[in-house]
Design a protein around this nucleic acid. Structure first.
Lengths: 320, 320
DNA sequence: TACATCCGTTGCCGTTTTGGCAACGCCTGC
DNA sequence: GCAGGCGTTGCCAAAACGGCAACGGATGTA
């Protein structure tokens, strides 16, 4: 088998077109056409279903694609594994992550990591949980960060950052003084939620349904940043873990609500990786590094939260 | 990277010589020399330590070798995965196994499997436990059978065939009538043992040491078949699981000894495979097949054993 | 129906890569 | 000092690759 042919085929599989693949690979379409013909002959099967508007993968093509991605990843690994020998630790780490840690935790640990290994560069893609999982599955990302990951045949998680779901309001909100409140009552206030692709939204709805409370967000978005800004301007309740509003919490632009909800406690951020895939030494190193930082940041979150409570919440009644 | 270059390199790594590799690959030595130079240039490292009598792998070479084997295995997998699409299930399954199941269990299930999938061929290598593990680790075998496998970073076991260790003697031996005997007494009789690379030998010695009994085999061998033949001719005790003497047990040329030893009970045969390695569909199929046959053969072993006891052992005293 | 447009394929031909051969330099053992 | 290994290099032929332009087929449009 010829690696060039495989490379072309993988590009065609991505583009679903020989012509587009030829442009992206900077070769003539005929070259790709021929290489793939040779591949088909060698494997004794038809890889592409030629249509008038491009190509579709046949079942055999799908299988070659699946293996080809793996082989491609393996080849990249060789280079970094040998580079690692000179303890250069250069190369790029591709991270796909869900939003929520992109403002503090992630930039912070990346900076810290870069101080130790300046030659390492990062390639960060922010995406939904499902897209993150897909990117890992397709070897388009080396590791990923996801919330409350349940199960996927090809993905495994291996480090956990405990991040309970909390509710926050801007200062001045009636609940900003630490008044104890149940979820059903809280939801009668103006609130915002992420869209249903977020675990947060699904969780809040599930718990609300049990409590027979009505969820009627004043705004929904696939961008937490928007929800924060909206909540600030509209005195709305926002549901996020501390990390999602860490900056606002420490600067006093958002205040925690005194909500206790058992179902919200067990949320966690995890590092995810593709099963049956070896990672480059640098990526392994970074994963370990991130894992170590998890507990540090759990403490920071907790401290920020306590400080905010102490600052904003009225002293408990029994001490009055 | 060029697959041809990698292929040459892997051959060189195996042969530890460019010339020998060139002969095995049917190309000129100069071609290989150049390809490897190119590879070194591309990876920016030295792969081979050129000596007067051949080459040695450098550390970088070792790493490339490790990855290369994996990539090679992946490539083979593509072919069989696509072949499998036509449900031909052809191709070869490479099995490395320890001795002991090579006379009855293995030929039997292979025959049975071949009746279902006639296009599959087998490549059986009998080796020691360590060699079996090595073969799996180096991708030279697809799956393996080993006894009492403990731990190896790259190998995992996934099906178990319970095979207690027993003692057998030829008919006419004083212990052939089912006289209950302890290990220390049994070892005062003439006995034979496999060499120390066998788990059997290690286990018997360990237990004997605890019982302060002396192990002094009249014969040792790395071939069970020899030990059986020797035991038969010399009225010696032989330690094996039922599978090791299944034929002799059913034909009445060997008789079980009435030995009870708790430490001997938990031995098992397992199927082993390399971690992080996908197997061809046919191999997966065969592994499942073998696993299913395990329980059937556990029953057969048990029945053969019971039948032999009923036939040879004197009735228990209390019934006299 | 005729035409334009997009697709993948094929024939031709120059370029690049690969491999065979023989000579070379090097080391080791006799 | 010489013979017999080894890997490497220069030279040249063979093979593989890729660009270009023309072609056949499918689709959409006037």
């Amino acid at each position: 088998m010829n690696l060039n042919a495989l490379k072309y085929f993988l590009e065609v599989a991505k583009c679903k077109s020989i012509r587009r693949a030829s442009e992206r690979q900077h070769v003539a379409a005929s070259a790709i056409s021929r290489q793939i013909s040779a591949l088909e002959h060698e494997l004794d099967c038809v890889l592409l279903d030629r249509r008038s508007d491009g190509v579709m993968l046949t079942e055999a093509g799908e299988r070659l694609w699946k293996h080809g991605l793996k082989i491609e990843a393996q080849l990249q690994l060789v280079q970094s594994d040998i580079d690692d020998l000179r303890s250069l630790n250069r190369g790029s780490i591709r991270i796909t992550t869900v939003e929520g840690i992109t403002e503090n935790f992630l930039p912070d640990i990346l900076t810290e990591f870069n101080q130790l290994y300046p030659e390492v560069t990062f390639d960060i893609t922010v995406a939904s949980r499902d897209e993150t999982v897909d990117a890992l599955d397709r070897y388009e990302a080396d590791i990923g960060f996801v919330y409350d990951f349940a199960h996927h045949h090809a993905i495994e998680t291996f480090a956990h950052y405990h991040q309970p779901l909390l509710a926050f309001v801007p200062p001045g909100h009636p609940l900003s003084d630490g008044t104890k409140v149940e979820l059903d009552v809280l939801l009668t206030h103006v609130h915002v939620l992420p869209d249903d692709s977020f675990g947060i939204s699904q969780l809040v709805k599930r718990v609300a349904k049990k409590a027979k409370a009505k969820v009627a967000p004043a705004a929904r978005s696939n961008l937490l940043q928007f929800l924060r800004s909206y909540a600030l301007r509209n005195q709305a309740v926002i549901f996020v873990p501390v990390q999602g509003v860490y900056t606002e919490l420490t600067t006093g632009t958002l205040v925690p609500v005194n909500l206790e909800c058992a179902a919200f406690v067990h949320r966690q951020l995890s590092i995810a990786r593709r099963r049956q895939r070896a990672l480059s030494p640098g990526t392994e190193l970074f994963a370990k590094f991130a894992e170590e930082r998890f507990s540090l940041w759990e403490d920071r979150d907790q401290q920020a939260l306590s400080a905010a409570r102490d600052k904003w919440w009225a002293p408990p009644k029994e001490s009055l």
